[in-house]
Design a protein around this nucleic acid. Structure first.
Lengths: 258, 258
DNA sequence: CGCAAGGTTGACTAGTCTCAATCCTTGTGG
DNA sequence: CCACAAGGATTGAGACTAGTCAACCTTGCG
């Protein structure tokens, strides 16, 4: 049923608009920015509401892109905050750490999403952002963004909305962590990933998870073994087929009802 | 050991700067605003970084105050978003609700804190804000705030910082919900309340909790019985003395180490 | 004074974690 | 190209934390 040939599977659910920003390079240092106007992630990304004029102004403050290898950090907790980052391709996890070493994954972030807003408050980041696959980001220097916000009402609104959206997103995660059973959390996670993949032009029913069971478990407030058991249970019940990181949602309605 | 006379206890830990905004009224509808310059919460509140000139301009957009009785809602999920609110006196809980009726308390909010930023994103609130004691708030119309942000860089920064702070606060709650035992959660909660009381001029060691065990449990992702057991355990271990809502922290260091 | 709401405690249960064995997948070097 | 190592995933058995249900106590208010 599941063909394990990753490449073929990837083709089967290729994005409508493939993000191929970093096609021919392996440099890890900042490099010239591409232009938002021609970016494949534009519709999902930050400047979506801007006029053409504002867009080109915005373009000019996006100073560079940066490539991040799988496992490397885009920034770390306590780094001084200078920029926010729009994910151009790939994906990240954000992790907060307690002094005693406990870690909590606070989110998984896909192309088009913005990282780093946690730093505005104290001018230091409060979390690590780690690439969970080779990724690229656009660097948006915060001081310039702030200045431009004073000029462009639309941009200001966009930034405020983005922040508020982050607050709302985190509230619903608190709901998940505070009130749901392990089974419900995993179901909610799969549904969430599904709708985000769909929003990016991938199949809502079949996709690759980029994170390990351990990272998922850490995010969902449970152990990796429990995540694995829930996947097995969903498979037994005919809701989902899973083979490692490859996921196919078979009965989306039933999964929503868990 | 614990004297149950609430009034006397309240005196024992009276705030250095009592917030007496709603002294002589019981009206529930909007009423003329007081002035920020003379407000007892000013140092803890939103316009803390503004110049005198900016402050008076800010004052002019704070249209009114409103009294909210214990148990009443300041706003509810799906209400259209028009204003944010600075708590002048009293305290609130914010609650998000799932379609199936599950509720999660996402925060307790004390005087000087700002409520309602969840609404910026969709122009509808995503949570309920319920007064957990008789309270009063200043109403800050968001459209006016937004306009003023375009003029005052300092205000813009303040608003962005506030939002970012909310994001960071919620991340640390996710950590609490995702990685801590019931005992650790209750300890962290007490320490958090303690430092917030202290920041408001109350005693850090002895204070009244305004919420019920059920509300605490809902916030901390556990049942009220478990909260109660943890209080009893801390009392047995000599870390905390509790008598209903009255709390005295006996061994703050040890409580931090839990 | 009596009632309702809130709080405490106990006994039992369910759900998740822990530890451990095993399997599968992927990448690497001979 | 194959063998092997290492990381990741799955599964099982037993332990333990927190939930459930129920009884009872305390406090504040009409």
């Amino acid at each position: 049923m599941f063909n394990a040939t990753t490449f073929a599977d990837d083709l089967a659910t290729a994005p409508v608009v493939p993000a191929s920003a970093c096609a021919n390079s392996n440099a890890r240092e900042p490099r010239p920015a591409q232009h938002c106007a021609s970016c494949s992630m534009r519709s999902a990304c930050m400047p979506q509401t801007l006029s053409d004029q504002e867009l080109s102004r915005f373009d000019s403050i996006v100073s560079a892109t940066r490539l991040i290898k799988r496992g490397d950090a885009l920034y770390r907790a306590n780094d001084t905050f200078q920029s926010i980052y729009a994910i151009r391709s790939g994906s990240f996890k954000t992790v907060v750490m307690h002094r005693d070493g406990r870690e909590q994954v606070t989110g998984f972030h896909l192309a088009g999403e913005v990282l780093g807003l946690d730093g505005v408050c104290t001018e230091h980041h409060s979390s690590d952002a780690i690439a969970i696959e080779d990724s690229s980001v656009c660097i948006i220097p915060y001081a310039l963004l702030e200045s431009m916000c004073a000029e462009s009402k639309r941009l200001q609104q966009q930034v405020l909305r983005m922040m508020s959206g982050e607050i709302v997103r985190e509230s619903s995660l608190m709901m998940l962590l505070g009130t749901m059973s392990a089974e419900q959390r995993v179901a909610a996670f799969l549904l969430n990933m599904s709708s985000r993949m769909k929003a990016r032009g991938y199949s809502a029913a079949e996709f690759n998870l980029r994170m390990t069971r351990e990272e998922m478990g850490n995010f969902l407030g449970m152990k990796l073994e429990t995540v694995s058991r829930m996947f097995s249970k969903f498979q037994r019940d005919g809701l989902v087929q899973s083979h490692g990181k490859r996921i196919r949602i078979v009965d989306l309605d039933e999964l929503s009802r868990v």
